[in-house]
Design a protein around this nucleic acid. Structure first.
Lengths: 219, 219
DNA sequence: GAAAACATACCAACCAGTATGTATGTTACG
DNA sequence: CGTAACATACATACTGGTTGGTATGTTTTC
């Protein structure tokens, strides 16, 4: 409406305290889960007082939602989903390279704390519908991005025509999170890498031998 | 030493109150996780008093361990591991039938609450070493059971010689738990079945085309 | 001066754990 | 046989600490 620098720099949008709270809450939730995340700990980390926190967020739950919407989800989109969408090449190759790259980029501690989104999924899906719906939406985005790539590849003849790409994409997301979960339990990065190797081997096996041209169509 | 009916029916072994507490704690932990499981809730469920509980278990953590050792782990062994060990036939076929059967046998609520062992793994692996070690041991048993079956199949020529059976077995366990996790988040049984379909399709694809005899050995 | 952005102090509920008491055996001994 | 000593299996009441949340104040900013 007016010509100020920011449309609304006051309450809802980009306040520094708000951002600091979300960042600290993201760390706390990643380390202890949402329910065990302590407001006292978040306040101690940031130096923010309880009054300020409850000025920005009506409840702990809303803070948790903000962490998911403004922190966890964007991070997963940037690291895992966006690379799949930009690329116009071979979907399986892209997928494999994304998995390798992100895997390599994870520290021992990243592995030990697990995927924040999946942590939240396992902890909260049966407890709170707001978290559950958010997480399902994000996993759905992810699955669709993979599915689209596989569809394209299938049209180009790089994937068997009989393959159910939707079901396959869902399985890829599931097994990826499964690998991260096993590695988190083991608290060992190499478990993730080895498990990821299994996944990559599978993805390689999906590639059709005769790539293009007049090959056999029926049986 | 003496000729009484039961060797030690008193403290450590099969007391009724103890069993009731473990069963109630298993339910409470399955529904809310270990940390959020309330002793008050368990006592209300059983009618047992706090004094009785702390007579049988020195702490909440020990109760949790007992639930794992005497409830969750045996259940997973019976449903998932034992069927693999008894069978002398084709390992992939056995594996697929186990997955199908257990999947079919799960109710909508079973799916919604998730695998108790994996729930515990995700919640507690970074928090408590006692749980972590127990869970890793159990997952290891499971992986080894699958690995042994795959090894046998490989020796019989039913699986490509180049396949790393250990890595593959780890990936199978991971993706299975991944499927259960996705279905838990979706709170929908059909998600598990579809995801399981993806896993089964993968397992089918592992089977070698020319089963036995003089086929090609090199390249 | 008015609203936004905090700060302080407090609260009721809940938590795991404990201290203490009691009822019911079981064993030892004379 | 009788009784003292001891152990098991509970029950009741309480404690210190933490939790998320609130009521009410002060400061800052436009």
């Amino acid at each position: 409406m007016n010509a100020s620098a920011a449309p609304d720099r006051h309450h809802e949008a980009g306040s520094d305290t708000r951002r600091a709270l979300i960042a600290a809450a993201a760390r706390e939730m990643h380390a202890h889960g949402f329910q065990a995340a302590s407001l006292a700990g978040i306040l101690a980390d940031t130096g923010v007082t309880k009054g300020a926190l409850y000025h920005h967020f009506p409840s702990k739950l809303d803070l948790g939602y903000a962490v998911f919407d403004e922190y966890y989800a964007p991070a997963l989109r940037v690291n895992w989903i966006a690379p799949l969408q930009g690329d116009r090449g071979d979907a399986l190759t892209t997928l494999i390279s994304v998995i390798s790259r992100v895997g390599e980029g994870m520290s021992e501690q990243d592995v030990a704390l697990g995927c924040p989104v999946n942590n939240l999924a396992q902890e909260m899906s049966a407890v709170d519908a707001g978290f559950r719906a958010r997480i399902e939406g994000l996993f759905d985005e992810w699955r669709r991005a993979i599915e689209n790539g596989l569809d394209r590849l299938q049209r180009q003849g790089g994937l068997e025509a009989g393959v159910d790409t939707r079901s396959l994409a869902a399985f890829i997301v599931a097994s990826l999170e499964g690998c991260l979960g096993m590695a988190k339990n083991a608290q060992r990065r190499d478990v993730m890498l080895e498990c990821g190797k299994g996944l990559i081997a599978y993805l390689q096996s999906l590639r059709r031998r005769e790539p293009a041209g007049v090959g056999d169509r029926h049986a």
